[in-house]
Amino acid sequence: MCAAVNFDISVWGGMSVDQSLLLEMYRRMGLVRQFDEAVQKLFNSGRIPGSAHLSIGQEGEVVGACMALREDDYMVGNHRSHGHPIGKGAGVNALMAEILGKSTGVNQGKGGSMHLADFSVGSLGESSIVGSGLPVAVGAALGSQMQGNDRVTLCFFGDGASNQGYFHEAMNMAALWKLPVVFLCENNGYGVTTPNNRAAALEDISARAAGYGTPSSIVDGQQCLEVYDAVTEAVERARRGDGPTLVEAKTYRYHHHSEGPLYDNMTYRSDEELAAWKLRDPLLLFREQLADSVAVADLDRMDEQVKQDIAAALEFAEQSPLPEPEEAYTHLYRTPVVVIEGELSNG
């Protein structure tokens, strides 16, 4: 399903591409959207402890980039990454259970919303320390290079993370060692409430790639296929051993930085700006593109399937047991240590 099929949008008319791949993209974008909508409802009803960072509006770049990967490739997310494991192929049941802190969650209730990870599909985890996933992704790519396999690592990070030292250190090492990594900047325009033009001297994050001799491109993050194309090219380059690429996807989050009342009366962005972006909703745009070659009834059927999958995930999560309190003391270490009066875990 994730075979590297390179889309050329200029010639694409529904004839020259794998339709099952397109439908799978549509399905995953729908799952990402509806997953976050369900999380929002859970949060508003007080069911989710802590915080929730939704990526509604960013599904095009999330799924477009992930679908350019092979199943055995790696992906590193960030604090706003409920959808990234879904894009990489993870099942939604264990992700939803994790959001509710259940024992059947991907992390058995130990990670939650900001740290979803499904290593079984190459999702190497999401770090909620902004920027810290960048060098980790470079390290996974170094591991692949040293092991002599041809796996590629895709690293998602935001415009805010690009101002961390991590970004520059990671870009430098990846370029220096020609590592098979693709840096995908999800430029949604804001770091919490600070617009990018008040945080960075240059408008385009991609311009920084030149400083590391690394090719880069800017894509419309609301156009799933445009992202898919650019990342596919970057993945092929990485797999050939020609090193990293930086792809900057211009996108937008419809919600504030995180859920809850904290941002209710914030005026850092206008209603008009939000409305303008919603006119270019990635799911609507993709559906319009697909309508040329896929029957509307098929798309509706897919929407219904996604709805049922999310409902089933909610049901699974709700019905799953909470972890036993003693589970708080497992998984700290893999190699058992001497346990003296319960001071140390040997999880």
């Binding site: 790696y74 590193v76 190497l124 985890g125 810290s132 960048l134 060098p135 980790v136 992704a137 470079v138 390290g139 996974a140 790519a141 170094l142 591991g143 692949s144 040293m146 092991q147 690592t153 030292g165 991590y166 250190e169 990671a170 430098n172 090492m173 220096l176």
Partner: peptide, 21 residues
């Protein structure tokens, strides 16, 4: 040999360890 970037190359070590090194 690494560049002088302790935070970055420590992250690289951690990522490499995650995939079996």
């Amino acid at each position: 040999d690494t560049p002088i970037c302790e935070s970055g190359f420590t992250g690289v070590a951690i990522g490499a360890a995650m995939v079996g090194m």
